[in-house]
Design a protein around this nucleic acid. Structure first.
Lengths: 329, 329
DNA sequence: CTGAAAGCGCTTACAG
DNA sequence: CTGAAAGCGCTTACAG
């Protein structure tokens, strides 16, 4: 392995100079263009790679961003990991380290992994588990603002409101909510119903589904049965698996989508354009959560004493072919 | 931050002793149970986390496994990342560092990222880009054995053979292959056709789709049109998006699945059980590629001079409801 | 701009 | 078992 020392020798320049150039501190020290060129050329020739563990040890800056979240087999969450991975590429020199807990691994162990690697900041869906006086910059995404850390909200409220408004604008009255994993959706939905003058249909939960589970999915198709002699004409689906189930059950019941039953999904899925009919969806964050999170975190890293930020992303409706005007009676 | 020194002071034990215990080398040095207890208790109390950058610098072992592959938006590949992430948890102390290239990031930059972090080993889909005399342990997954590194094969040949055998056993003659991204599938399929005595139907490619692309998908639905006055009765689909497209097009053409058209997918997708009908699939690796890769890599890391390993995973057919006996004429 | 030196937190012989 | 020491590759003042 080539080291700074090797380059220093080869160029007969001092270690400090070489370090400054290769560490990106050449400007600050007013090092001549010629010297810079020389160092860079030599580094290239000797195929030099800085040893980041040494750099980290000395400067206590690792250029690692930690991701702390459960390993959930649901598209929305998995995309969070994949998209953050992709997005971090925009921040020169930084990498993402995912610490994901599941049935085998505890959140504590994940936290430890990140700490041992000396991450510069943390993105997490579970800021609640962090101590109030945590010493690292944190960007959290949650349903409610963190008491302490910057937060990008992914709450369902706005999405539900917009979806309901859309359904109502199409003339629907009897509207169902399907696929509520966390249980807060149903509650919110029932609260919102009077405001929108609709008849809400929900599926009570029989048992709590653990969030971290291989077989994490819901079968909320009972919603489609007749209830008080009527069926919902519009279903809002909270995840992609539920959407598929609803579609399947509708076919079994000979309900045509969208003529007999409209379906609107909250959050998009890559499969929606490919289904028949293509499923319309409401995206909770048009700009994308990963981008906003990273941006927030890096701002915080720059200005530790910045005021706490709470961000409410702007959502967006994507109309495809799964919703139509209410057309019965 | 608590350091070894702090613990050494607090326990009035020597630095070496503390380091040995916390570094897991207590047994080797015959340190007494009592001393071990003492150190562990103190570390716990002072909330000690080893600084892995220091450890790495000194021992030149980072306990990081690098993943080097393109960032492709196809379920099979994305699962590779997610599953490896999960699987690495079984190797105490090790973490996975994903270096994924896309349109913005070059493979060279990704390689550099891994080298700078001093990874202990690399898993890659593109071993071809590694120098022959690469100094790190490598486990590659590829269609063909690497000339130098251990390889887990994910070639289509076995999958295609088994799928064809299945189709033929159901009495099908006119069989199509859909969704061939890399172009080698069609070729293989045509070669295999005579052996199985079938009439192959393929879709010629009009243009090459770049492997790394946001809109990476195929529309091979032309396959379903009549050709020489007949349609294929069985389609083998090479990816999940293609499967959805075939299903969609079949509905448009009023072809019932599986009565008029059987569909078998190569590689499973989490959506298949939820479609109507539920789609049967052939899984290329029953045990799972990620597990085999990690296992191979760690073996190699232990025994650098082990003979090169080429692994051909055992596949498995999952029957659901999208295939049936040929029943025409 | 340069050179010599200290030190980040750890592991690793080595002598006792 | 312990203690003292060296050193991994880097950055960071500091004196010139």
């Amino acid at each position: 392995m080539t080291t700074l020392k090797d380059i220093s020798k080869a160029t007969s320049l001092s270690l400090s100079t070489v370090s400054a150039v290769l560490g990106g501190r050449a400007k600050k020290l007013a090092i001549s263009e010629k010297t810079i060129e020389k160092v860079l050329a030599c580094a290239e020739e000797l195929n030099y790679h800085p040893d980041l563990s040494a750099r980290t040890l000395r400067s206590s800056e690792s250029k690692i961003i930690g991701l702390l979240m459960p390993n959930i087999k649901v598209e929305f969450w998995q995309n969070m990991i994949l998209d953050l991975q992709k997005e971090i590429g925009k921040y020169e020199g930084y990498i993402l380290l995912s610490a994901l807990w599941d049935n085998r691994t505890s959140i504590k162990k994940c936290m430890r992994d990140l700490l041992c690697r000396k991450v510069d900041g943390i993105i997490t869906s579970h800021a609640v588990f962090l101590p109030e006086n945590f010493h690292l910059p944190v960007a959290s995404y949650d349903k409610e603002p963190s008491t302490k850390f910057d937060t990008v909200l992914y709450g369902k409220k706005e999405a539900l409101e917009k979806s309901l408004a859309y359904a109502v604008s199409l003339g629907h009255k009897r509207i169902a909510l399907a696929g509520d994993a966390e249980g807060d959706g149903n509650k919110l939905f029932l609260e919102l119903a009077p405001e929108f003058g609709i008849t809400p249909v929900i599926q009570e939960k029989e048992k709590i589904t653990p969030l971290v589970d291989e077989s994490f999915y819901y079968r909320n198709t009972l919603l489609l049965e007749e209830h008080d002699g009527a069926r919902p004409s519009f279903v809002i689906s909270l995840n992609n698996l539920t959407t598929l189930n609803i579609l399947k059950r509708a076919a079994e019941l000979s309900l045509k989508v969208p003529d007999d039953l409209s379906i609107l999904a909250i959050d998009d899925s890559y499969i929606y354009p490919f289904l028949s009919p293509a499923v319309s969806s409401f995206i909770r964050s048009e700009e994308g959560f990963p981008r906003m999170l990273l941006q927030t975190l890096f701002e915080r890293m720059k200005k530790k004493d910045m005021e706490q930020k709470i961000i409410i992303p702007e959502g967006k409706l994507i109309e495809r072919n799964s919703c139509c005007k209410y057309n019965k009676k």
